[in-house]
Design a protein around this nucleic acid. Structure first.
Lengths: 338, 338
DNA sequence: CGTTAGCAGTCGAGGGTCGGGACTGCTAAT
DNA sequence: ATTAGCAGTCCCGACCCTCGACTGCTAACG
């Protein structure tokens, strides 16, 4: 275990390194904290911290920089701080200005988090264990081309075009829609598949399409998150030579980032911090992830996270993620009717 | 004007520089083309090209690199080449594998273009001069919360939540929806606004919401393009020190890229190339843009473009953009019923 | 007069050296 | 356990040098 002084020193190193991205010297630790000791004493303590792998040094006569273990200790002993009121008000204000539509909220949330944490923000939409059928609408566009609008529980609407063998008049479509709406109300895709009602060929075709759409939603675990803030990363000195950035960028564009940063377990509405090598996936082992779930337990869960270099402002990031996960949870509760 | 030999030399310089990103020496021009002259002669001609601002040199004893004017001449004298059949087949194949849904198509198209041109692809969805009302659906979610699903011409559906002062039963909503559907069929937002029918308070509230949604779509000129391929840019040697990239990245994330690259005039289905300083906006003057419109003239027009460093493979990029604009136009025609 | 061989001149890249500055590790004294 | 003091380490930037790649120029040639 670390005694008080060593802990103070470690924290000071982490704090200063996060702020300045240069190795922290024994002298600057003295200036940062008013411990009444000399720099030589600090150096002795730093030797211990290095021994114990909390910190390392770029070369033998340089200052200390935190290792993953050092960041971990820093994060674990961080007392929770709320997001500053100014920022809370800013968030509230912006959410009030925007249309009441899930997509807009999540876009806004991503931009806000990226801005506040000065790093990449990744948000997945809230998703229930299995989507429930809410409403179906069939709209004849022309000839035999029909637009299917499927509304799932949680105000989630999806569209899809379908072509029938022959033209079907709109009122027939309305009949079909009514039939299927009463048949499938509030069911999940397995339930619909098991239902096996007596269906006309047209109804059959539409049911299959609906099933396909619902299954696609159910399976869409990590697809298409809302994402913002890539440009902040470019500003970080550790990415001046853009090599490391490339791997991350590709993950982002291939929409694989999320499955790489998702920790094995993640309790609801509790902010988790995964630091550097603690990440399973190799491609993100130079990054840290601050992640939390939001939504309604057992009904619709989304995740909200920040990805940035291990040298990131954890305190601020954690409180930002925590606060936004609260805000988004409230919004979801509203859509799902408490 | 350039005589044949000078033109051959200029083209060779552009071609080689695009391929290798290093200054082109007189010797390598001889190896590239079988002009039966010595390197000294080439050097004399290069001096002329430099005089006329077709090329420049990084320092006095280095080879030539093209200037915007050189690229411009190269592009203008390029004979049109079709996309290789292999790639055409690849594109056709992939489009057949995907659901018939506008969003999916455009996502796929963006990925494909980025891949084929090895640069950033930006695609805007097809958009008519003014959207026409097609269908409206009202779905009671719970209490007084209602989901409005608005379908516009061209299979474009939009959702929006709305809260009423008090709960309204689903059958009332259906009546309202029917009423408004027959009232507003095929109208544009100004027409609906001018209509001024006798409306109940609920109908009034919904009409206003619909108008808001339609206007939002109408105004959404440059919003939310489909975008892919940022990571290719990172690989280019000219962006090794990521300074220049930053400005571009910010444009992308603020969704302002498109309005910066859009040329003043752009004839339908004709590929335009805007090179470096020819761009109006300063932030993209180190980039070239290959851009074309697609869709149905007077009905629904989208743009499809590639953004990359001025040193980009123009030939391939142009044929890619041209071909994809053809493919997307066909798909749009299908959705709009020829 | 266009073309060319040949050569001197230019510039960048890469490697080596050097000195100053920022720190540390160590030691001996407290 | 703490500290002052000092020698030692290493980075960084400046400077210099050399090598090689190309060019510009000039004078000669058909």
């Amino acid at each position: 275990m670390l005694n008080t002084r060593r802990e103070t020193i470690l924290k000071s190193i982490v704090r200063q390194y996060i702020a300045k991205a240069t190795p922290v010297s024994s002298q600057s630790i003295i200036e940062d904290n008013r411990l009444g000791v000399s720099s030589a004493t600090i150096r002795n303590e730093m030797a211990y911290l290095e021994e114990e792998n909390y910190i390392t040094r770029p070369h033998s006569s340089a200052g200390g920089i935190p290792l993953d273990k050092g960041y971990r200790h820093y994060v674990d002993t961080l007392e929770e701080t709320a997001l500053p009121m100014v920022d809370q008000r800013l968030v509230a204000h912006l959410f009030h200005q925007v249309e009441r539509e899930l997509e807009e909220w999540l876009n806004l949330a991503a931009t806000l988090i990226a801005q506040l944490a000065q790093n990449i923000a990744v948000i997945t939409p809230p998703k229930p264990p299995a989507y429930q059928f809410k409403h179906l609408e069939l709209i004849a566009l022309h000839h035999s081309l029909v637009l299917i609008v499927l509304v799932l529980r949680g105000a989630r609407a999806r569209e899809q075009l379908i072509t029938f063998p022959e033209a079907i008049p709109q009122w027939d479509l309305a009949t079909v829609a009514n039939r299927l709406n009463s048949e499938y109300a509030d069911m999940t895709s397995p339930q619909i598949a098991a239902r096996n009602a007596q269906l006309s060929p047209a109804e059959q075709q539409i049911t299959e399409c609906v099933l396909k759409m619902m299954r696609a939603e159910d399976n869409q675990q990590y697809q298409d998150p809302y994402l913002d803030g890539m440009h902040f990363i470019l500003n970080q000195p550790e990415f001046a030579q853009s090599r490391r950035l490339l791997a991350l960028m590709e993950l982002v564009e291939q929409r694989k980032l999320l499955q790489h940063i998702m920790p094995a377990e993640l309790p609801f509405r509790q902010v988790r911090v995964v630091i550097g090598r603690e990440n399973k996936a190799e491609a993100v082992q130079e990054y840290s992830v601050v992640i939390s779930q939001y939504g309604l337990p057992h009904e619709a869960i989304g995740t909200i996270s920040v990805v940035g270099p291990t040298r990131m402002p954890y305190e601020r990031t954690i409180s930002t993620v925590d606060y936004l996960s609260l805000v988004l949870s409230r919004l979801v509760a509203e859509v799902y009717g408490r």
